[in-house]
Each structure stands twice: as C-alpha cells, then as structure tokens.
Design a protein around this nucleic acid. Structure first.
Lengths: 232, 232
DNA sequence: TGTATAATTATTGTCGACAAGATTGTTGGC
DNA sequence: GCCAACAATCTTGTCGACAATAATTATACA
C-alpha cells in the first residue's frame, strides 16, 4: 500500500533528498559528532519509508560523514582529534595541488566564478559573520579546485573541506579576530597568481595559506574555545 | 515470508558479500566497463533479495566503480581514456606522498609486511604471470601507503590503484617484456630508502617509478595492444 | 513504407512486514 | 545491595509487493 507523500515528491528524489538534508545537518553540526541516527525517527520526520533513508546513510558512510556500527545504530562520524596531523597534511597538500592545477588549466569562466566566490567571502568578513565566512571560504577553494579539472583531487579536497567545516564550526566563536582580513588579502594574491599562470607562486601562496589555517585551528584547539554543546 | 538462503549466511553479511563479489568482478574485468548490471539477475544468482544488492551498488557508486543512471540500470564505470592525464597526475602524486610518509612513519612491522609483498611480486615476475604481477604490485604499494598512516591518502591511493588495475588488465598481454624486472629493482631501492628514512630518496624513487608506470601505460595504449573482449 | 502514437513489458524506487540480534529491564540468588 | 540469568522491547537487515518510469513492441495513419 502506498504511503501518503507529505508533499508531492518526484520519484527517485527520495534518497537524494534525505542525503542532502542529512549531509547539511552533519556539516552544520545540527547533528553532533558521535550522536546516533535513528532510522525510524528519520523516516517519520521526513515522511517516507526506511529504504531511501538507508540508502542515504550508505552514501554518507562512503564519504566518511557517518559510521555504521554493525547491527547497531549508525552514528555521526566523530572528529578524530588525535590524528589531526594527518588531516592537516592532506589538507595542505590539496590546497597546493588544486591551486597549482588551477593556475595551469583555468579558463576565463573559472576565474569569473572564483572572483565571485571571493566577493562572497569578503562580504562575510565585512559583516563579521563567522558562519558565512566558513561556508564562503569553502566555496572559494572548491571553485579553485574545479578550475584545476582533476576529479580525483577535487573529490578528496571537498571531503577535506567538509571535515574542515565541521572543525571550524566547533570553534567558530573565536573566528572574529584579525585573521579573516588577512585571508581576504591572501585570496587576492592567489587569484592573481592563478590568472598569471604562475605555478610556483600558486604553490607558494597556497602553502602559506594552508599553514595559516592549520595554525589557526591548532591555536583554537589549544586555547580550548570549544563549543561544548552543538546547535540544536 | 523468508526466502531460503543458499548457504547459511550470517545476518548482516549479505550486502557485504555482494559488495565484495561485485568489486572483484569489476576490477578483474569479468564485468566489462560500461556493461549494465541487472539487479534482478544478480538477486537470482546470489540467491538473495534486491535490497542488499542495491546497498552494494550504492557503495560501489560512491567509490566510482559503478555509475547509476537515474531510473535506468546501473552500469560498470567506464575507463575515461580522454582524461587519463588527470589519472596519471593523481597516481604519481600519491606514489610520492605515500612513499615519503612511509619513510617518515613506518614501523619494523610495516617493513616486514612490505618486504613480504615485494617477495610476492618478485615471484610473480619470476613466473611471468602478468595477472599476478598486477595484483601483487598493487598490494606492495598499498602496504607502503598503510605504513604512511594517513587514511586520506591511502583512501585516494587505493581508489587509484583500483583504476590502475582495470587499465593494466585491459593491456596485460603486453606485460611480459623486460620492464617487470626493472620494477623489482626499483621496489628494492624504495624499500631501502624507506628503511633509511631518507625522505628525499623516497620521493625521488617514487616519482621515477611512477613515471615508468605512466609511460608504460601510455606506450601500451599507443601501440594499441588492447584486449577487445573482456574475460567472461 | 516510414513515422507517430498507443499498448505492453521490464526495471527501478519505495513501501510495509518480519525475523535475527542487540538493548534494556526484571527477577532471583548470594 | 550487587551481579547474573532471563524476559521484554527495540532496532537493524532482509524480504516480497507494487507503482512510476523507461524501454519495447504493436498499431494507425500519411
């Protein structure tokens, strides 16, 4: 028997919809790291059966955003503070590689998009909106990666940016210092290097930018300005 | 109503089982790139319902081994010969990074495992068994990556090695030249560099090794020794 | 005979149901 | 009063069923 659809959903959009909702809630820390995900409860909330929900969970597990415990509930992936250095290594390398490749392969249309993202970021900094800074910074670097045209690198990089976003959200209350303005300037330099197709400059600037971000996160952690309770 | 299980499978192993079977058949080209995967047929062959099969397909799609066409059948992922350079770029970088990190972080136990894998590879070369060479070479480099202890890099690297395996299998008939012996020697040098924790040597050797492999694949392609019909 | 449209079939996406296993609560023994 | 065995409950993994969509075949008309 057919279950009443809450709104007239199109066929095939169910699992996709659940995937997007869950992904967003995980990245925004609406769902706290480590908290269990109740399939039945979700099915009730989103007014569909467990099948598309399970499909979304399998996909999220593949991206490491969720950890399925066999015969036990699936939980939101924890942030591994003990192995952050592996995260920093990977993030730094991907910053460098994607920016280099952008310098090599970008088109005028790519540059336009990158500039638009940079404007979004600058506006967020102007408004001192920490949450918007996190999101727009992510989009800026994702746009650069896209211009590099290497799906293997963009895939890994976007995963790392996802994790970065979760970490930054944990600490975002201390995001209103003088650093963001420096990031705006560094972004501008990166754009210039990409446009000039100066690969060495791209690499150097991306490395410096990554080091900035890494040391900011490390300082946030050591100062212990962690949000203890997630949004909810 | 319960369907008869062909063999007494343990609960929770169904989807995992299908995933492993399909993954192996895709990497071994038993399932040709581009060929459609029939859920009903698979369900009949593996004697289970479509649910665990769909879960396996979703997982494989996440790893890029399979491409789901919306409201149409899922197909085995094609090999993109037009963008091979992005693949080579990523493979080369991951060879370098994982070998470097192995030089930095390996333990004696890691080295032991790497040496065992190298012996497997040498034996395959000795026997002129091209299929075994492909498999053991993969395991050798995966072991090095594991010693580097960075799950982000090992994750991407293993995906690349999977794709590499599919490409090599396409051309494996031309794998019985003088090159494999050179690979054995290069592997030995890499092991020595890792053991000596000589990061620069690790990087240099991995780069040279990667270049070898890339140019071998390119020459295979240009010489057009492609298998036209997959194993089946 | 060729093309456009309608009927038929096949396949996918989603559903409710149910059993195996895990979790929690209860009772009883020491 | 604390721990162990058992019972009750909840959750997950899998199943068969069914409707919506795509593919295929049949049919009508130019």
């Amino acid at each position: 028997m057919m279950q009443k659809p809450a709104r007239e959903r199109k066929r095939g959009s169910g699992a996709q919809y659940v995937y997007e909702i869950l992904r967003e809630e995980i990245l925004d820390l609406v769902l706290a790291p480590g908290s269990p995900i109740d399939e039945n409860q979700l099915a009730e909330r989103l007014e569909m059966s467990r099948t598309p929900i399970r499909e979304a969970l399998v996909r999220l597990a593949g991206e490491g955003l969720v950890t399925p415990l066999p015969n036990r509930s699936t939980v939101v992936a924890n942030i591994d503070f003990f192995n952050l250095h592996t995260f920093f290594d990977a993030l730094t390398l991907m910053y460098r590689v994607t920016t280099r490749l952008a310098g090599e392969y970008h088109t005028p249309a790519d540059l336009e998009l990158i500039r638009a993202r940079q404007e979004d970021f600058a506006r967020a900094v102007e408004n001192q909106d920490a949450l918007a800074m996190i999101a727009t910074n992510r989009e800026f670097h994702a746009a650069i990666a896209e211009a590099g045209r290497n799906p293997y690198f963009t895939g890994l990089f976007c995963r790392l940016l996802d994790e970065d976003q979760r970490i930054l959200r944990l600490y975002y209350s201390s995001f209103n210092d003088q650093l963001p303005k420096r990031y705006v300037a560094e972004h501008e330099q990166m754009i210039a290097a990409i446009e000039a197709r100066d690969i060495n400059a791209c690499d150097r600037l991306a490395l410096a930018h990554a080091d900035q971000i890494v040391s900011q996160i490390q300082s946030m952690i050591s100062r212990g300005v962690m949000r203890t309770v997630p949004l909810d």
